[in-house]
Write a protein that binds this DNA or RNA. Structure first.
Lengths: 156, 156
DNA sequence: CTGTCAAAGTCAAAGAAAGTCAATTGACCT
DNA sequence: AGGTCAATTGACTTTCTTTGACTTTGACAG
């Protein structure tokens, strides 16, 4: 068992039931697990990043601490934002890929779903005689349609 | 007896009855069989591919592992190829929906994935000024691109 | 205000797996 | 014997983890 994993579940356990917040001492935790203190930072960076739905706040010096907050993560709102503000009615290839990547990172799309979206918008898929502008329009439409579907995931 | 065969049956044995999942250490297994670690990859590639009904997932680095999952039923990849032949370079709305339904039923696409595909090919998404023939072409392209992605699921 | 000490942060190097690929080897079939 | 395709190997790559030296920040005593 990887130490990082143990630390991860330890923390998630603390978060588990009642509270969406934990406060801990980096050095104590490190000693408890018999690892280097900086390993705690590693765990925070790789398992409690914002894109995974956590925020962390800390303080150095005497009486320092690390606080981890689980953010309730409201996917639909973010999707609405994407559709309304970020996409508009025209979308470049690069923009599309960036949006897909961020959906994946935030967990709103699984890797498989992200790949599918990527496939649907690939230059290969859209190799039809249309002006670049029309292609951008088409991309935007397909993307919106897919994102709206993602947003409805689960309530069918 | 070929070593690859021994490894294959060893793994299939582990999968045997109860569980549809094994986790193993590449190096350990290689040492146990006295072969090069990369031979394990060979066995996975040739005997545990998605088209044979297995998915594999792995992690490198300290505490790394390889997990093999037997996917119930479905001669999946084969179907992907069939479908690919069936598509050609033109696809109607109805054909598209039928194909998506069959992908879902055979388990090659999850419900979520099927919905995404549906969304990408919906009339709404494709509401651009194109002749019906060109739209059918576009549908075929998008569909193929997505199916190829599905087919590669897991072996990347 | 200043120095000191107790935290936490950063970063890069070392370590531990797994992945890739191309070159060899081997088995079987004309 | 030669050809072909599967199997085997090993050098090299990539990814993830762990550690430790050094830095920065904050609290508090004097």
């Amino acid at each position: 068992m990887r130490i990082s994993d143990s630390i991860e579940s330890f923390i998630k356990n603390m978060l588990g039931e009642d509270s969406d917040e934990v406060e801990l001492k980096r050095n104590e935790l490190a000693e408890y697990f018999g690892c280097a203190p900086s390993q705690i930072n590693y765990v925070l960076a790789t398992r409690f990043s914002p894109s995974q739905g956590y925020l962390t706040e800390s303080r150095r010096g005497g009486g320092g601490y690390i606080r981890i907050v689980r953010v309730v993560e409201t996917g639909p709102q973010r999707m609405a934002y994407l559709v309304r503000d970020r996409i508009g009615d025209s979308l470049s290839e690069e923009q599309a890929q960036r949006i897909i990547a961020s959906l994946r990172e935030s967990g709103m799309a699984s890797p498989e779903e992200a790949d599918l979206m990527s496939a649907a918008l690939s230059p290969k898929a859209l190799a039809v005689p249309l002006s670049p502008e029309m292609k951008a329009t088409l991309r935007a439409r397909i993307m919106k349609s897919m994102i709206l579907t993602l947003a409805n995931k689960g309530n069918r």
